[in-house]
Simulated assay, not measured.
Amino acid sequence: MIEIRNLSKIYKTKNGHVKGVDNVSLTIQEGEIYGIVGYSGAGKSSLLRCINLLERPTSGGITVGGIDLTSLKDGDLRLARLKIGMIFQHFYLISQKTVFENIAFSLKAAKTPPGKIKNRVEDLLEMVGLADKRDVYPSQLSGGQKQRVGIARALANNPNVLLCDEATSALDPTTTKSILNLLKKINKELNITIILITHEMNVVKEICDRMAIMQEGRVIEEGRVYDIFATPQEELTKEFIESVVSFEMPEVILNKCKGTIVKVLFRGEVAGEGVISDTLQQFNVKGNFLHGSIEYIQESPLGIFVMELKGENEEIEKALQFIKNRSAQVEVLRDGV
C-alpha cells in the first residue's frame, strides 16, 4: 500500500515560490491500477516524482509498503527505489546500447550478479513481446517497441510499484491500446501496483481501478473510475469525461423538441435492460431518442441516454419516477414547452 500524507512541493523560481503540489493525501491499495489525471501544470508529474523521491517533498510523508521513504538516508533510499520502477513518455533509452544492453543496464546498476543478468533480461524480453529485438538498437524500433523496452527496464529489479509518467502520450491510439493491455497483464500476473499519470480519460477508462483529478496542485475529486464517470462532481471532472463521452446536443435539434428532455443514466447490469421500452409501454407517453450509448468501464456497463418525452405532465412524471426506480439517475434538462 502507498500512503501520501499532506504532501506539498514548493519550487523556488525567479518570480518567487510556486506550489507544485498542495497538501495532497491519497491511499493507493496494493495491486491496483491508480490514475492521476490533470492538465499540464496541474501538479500530477510533480506528485509522481515525489513518490519515489526523485523530488523530495517540501512537507508531508510518503509511505510505500510500510516504509516511510522521507525518513530514509541515501543508501537505504537507493535500495527502496529498486522496488519502485518508472517509465516515461519519452523512453530515455541509451541510443548506443542494444535492447538487451538497455535492460541489463538497470540490473548492473543494482549490482546484480553477472550470471543472473542474461536469463533475467531474456525473461523480460519475452514478457514484453520483444524477444526478436534482443540485439537491435533503439533507432531501429517503433515508439511502441521503445516503450516496451522502457517497461522491461522498469521491471528488471522486480519492483512492487510501477510509476508511469504519461507513458502513452507519445503513441498512436492502436499502440496505446497494446501498451495498456501489456500494463494490465503485468498488473494481473505480477500483482504490481501501477500509478499512471495522464491527461487522457480514455486511458483511465481503459485500465484504472480508481483515480484522482488534480487542479492547481490539489486533488479535487477522487474515487472509483466507474463512480466518477457515472456521477462526476466537479466541473473539471465533467470536462474530462466529456472528452470521452460527449452528450452535448446541438441547439438546432433541441429547438425542434417541444417535449420534456431528460438525461437518463443506468448503472451496472440494468444498463442492458429494456427500461425505456417498458416505460413507453406502461405509460401514456411517447419517447424520442436524441442521443445515447453504453460505455464499458472495468467491464461494467454504464448507459447514458438523452431523450424527449411527450404527453400529459402527470403521465410524464409517472414515467420519470418509474425510470428513477430502475436506474441510478434521471436529470430533466428542459421541461416541455
Rank of each mutant, 00 (worst) to 15 (best):
L155Q: 02
D227I: 10
K238H: 03
V161R: 03
R78V: 12
K83E: 09
A212S: 13
K310V: 04
F266H: 13
F100V: 11
L26E: 15
K318V: 01
G38Y: 10
P173T: 04
N6W: 05
G292R: 01
Q329V: 11
L254T: 02
S59T: 03
E273C: 13
T237P: 09
N52V: 06
Y92C: 07
T112A: 04
P138M: 00
Q281D: 09
M211G: 10
R326Y: 02
L254Y: 01
A131W: 14
G217C: 05
R267N: 03
A170E: 03
I195C: 00
I103R: 03
I117W: 00
S246I: 00
F105Y: 07
I323C: 11
A167W: 04
Y34P: 04
Q329K: 15
S71H: 04
M1A: 04
L320W: 09
D335S: 09
Y11P: 15
P232I: 07
Y137P: 10
F247G: 10
I103N: 05
V225I: 06
C208M: 06
F88M: 07
K133M: 07
G287Y: 08
Q29I: 13
L124I: 07
E189A: 00
A156I: 02
G144E: 14
G259M: 06
H291M: 12
S139T: 11
E308W: 07
E3M: 02
T260L: 07
I194D: 11
L280T: 02
V330A: 03
V225G: 09
P57M: 03
P57D: 00
T70Y: 11
N157K: 10
G31C: 00
G16S: 05
G35T: 03
L79P: 11
H17K: 06
V204S: 13
S40D: 04
S277V: 10
T193M: 06
E317M: 08
S106C: 04
V264G: 13
T58Q: 07
I67Y: 11
G259D: 07
I228Y: 09
M249A: 15
K9Q: 12
I117S: 00
K14G: 02
T27G: 05
L183F: 08
S277P: 09
A80W: 00
Q89P: 11
L254H: 08
T260S: 11
T176D: 06
I2M: 15
E189H: 01
T98H: 08
C164W: 02
E101H: 08
I195Y: 04
K188E: 07
K111W: 10
E235Q: 14
E216Q: 12
L125Y: 15
E317Y: 09
P250M: 15
N313L: 01
F105P: 08
V64P: 13
I192W: 02
N181Y: 01
I186T: 10
A104G: 00
G75K: 15
I304E: 02
P232M: 05
L302P: 10
K116R: 06
K188Q: 13
I294P: 15
Q89A: 06
I207P: 08
R218H: 12
P159V: 06
R120Y: 01
C257D: 09
G31M: 00
A212V: 08
T237W: 11
E166C: 02
A212N: 06
V244H: 04
R210V: 09
